[in-house]
Simulated assay, not measured.
Amino acid sequence: MNLLAVVDASVKKEGLQDLTMQRTVSSVPFAGRYRLIDFTLSNLVNSGVSTVGIFPSYPLASLLDHIGVGKSWDLDRRKNGLYFLPVTQRDGGLSSVGAFAALEEHIQFFTKSNQPHVVVTNSFVITQLDFKDMLEQHIDSGADITEAVSQGVSLKNYILSRELLLELIQTHQDKKVVSVEDVVNLKKSPHVFNEYDYKGYFAVIDSIQSYFEASFALLDEENREQLFLKDRPIYTKVKDEPPTRYMNGSKVKRALIANGSTIMGEVIDSTISRGVYIKKGARIEKCIIMQKSSVEENCDLKYVIADKDVFIGEGVVLHGTAEHPIVLRKGETVRKEDLR
């Protein structure tokens, strides 16, 4: 396909700080078994894009571990495939997509490529974007830059020629612009702008509340059917784990539960990731419990987000609200005596 992909995984969102202290936004877990970047990479692969450059910021370990060489997305190729291009500015990471300073660090990625067009995308907007269709409309429109939008909301996905992107990278300091998103928002001449109207499920994940709302939106079958399409699957890192075990006395209602977990208690309106233990007598309602966390006996949790490897001791009661869920950070331990 005549499209080169830039995945800007350096964008930082202050509203997600509790979930990004040890990882980038792109590697935040979502929907039980995925990471946010999975949706972007899957859209690219399903659209026939085979040359993908990921531009991440620090900390990198979680993202590197998840993506590897791109095998799960069929991007581990001898020709083209996946390029991991870290942004060296540790204090960098703008809140806008396609920062020219970051792209300039790896200018050879663009000068050595032969695709005539580039899609600049992000890893915090959940969609089922068809970039092939978007490219066709972009070319037909004759515009310089096409932006994907839905219901008046920018999806922060942009297509432009590789030649124009190189020009913008090389002149951004003189023109006082910082990113592709910035150029689109300013809409200054002589560039011509176009909008691609996306119809389908989408979610912009830029705060704890939006993350919480998007997670629970997927408990509705209609939203899942729009996002998880049979002919456009969402790929993720493969993990061989046994099915989840539902023990005698367990109760589950309206929940997304990944494989490898053990459910002994009650789970209602919640998302449970891989390898989670919900012990006997525990009640989980409107919660997100991430990978390898453990909820001990007789706990009562409501509106709680528990990051990976969280341990919640016996009898702990934690009640947040829909507007202000309680966030337990990665690796945190909570016991009854801690709450007195």
Rank of each mutant, 00 (worst) to 15 (best):
S150D: 09
S150Y: 08
Q151P: 10
Q151Y: 15
G152L: 06
V153E: 14
V153D: 14
V153W: 11
S154V: 04
S154M: 09
S154H: 09
S154G: 11
L155G: 04
L155I: 08
L155C: 07
K156F: 12
K156S: 12
K156Q: 13
K156C: 11
N157Q: 14
N157C: 13
N157G: 13
Y158K: 00
Y158F: 10
Y158S: 01
Y158L: 03
I159Q: 02
I159E: 03
I159K: 03
I159N: 06
I159M: 05
L160C: 07
L160A: 04
L160M: 06
L160N: 00
L160V: 01
L160K: 01
L160S: 00
L160H: 01
S161D: 08
R162M: 10
R162Q: 09
E163C: 11
E163S: 12
E163K: 13
E163N: 14
E163L: 10
L164K: 05
L164V: 08
L165P: 03
L165R: 01
L165M: 06
L166Y: 04
L166K: 06
E167H: 08
E167T: 09
E167C: 04
E167D: 13
L168R: 13
L168D: 11
I169K: 07
I169C: 08
I169A: 13
I169N: 05
Q170Y: 13
Q170H: 14
T171H: 04
T171M: 02
T171V: 06
H172S: 11
H172Q: 10
H172T: 08
H172C: 11
Q173Y: 12
Q173M: 14
Q173I: 11
D174S: 15
D174A: 13
K175G: 02
K176Y: 04
V177E: 02
V177S: 05
V177I: 14
V177Q: 07
V178R: 00
V178L: 03
V178Y: 00
V178H: 01
S179A: 13
S179E: 03
S179K: 01
S179R: 00
S179P: 02
S179H: 03
V180E: 01
V180A: 02
V180C: 01
V180D: 02
V180L: 03
E181C: 11
E181S: 11
E181H: 06
D182Q: 00
D182K: 00
D182C: 00
D182A: 00
D182G: 01
D182E: 02
V183E: 01
V184Y: 07
V184T: 10
V184R: 02
V184S: 06
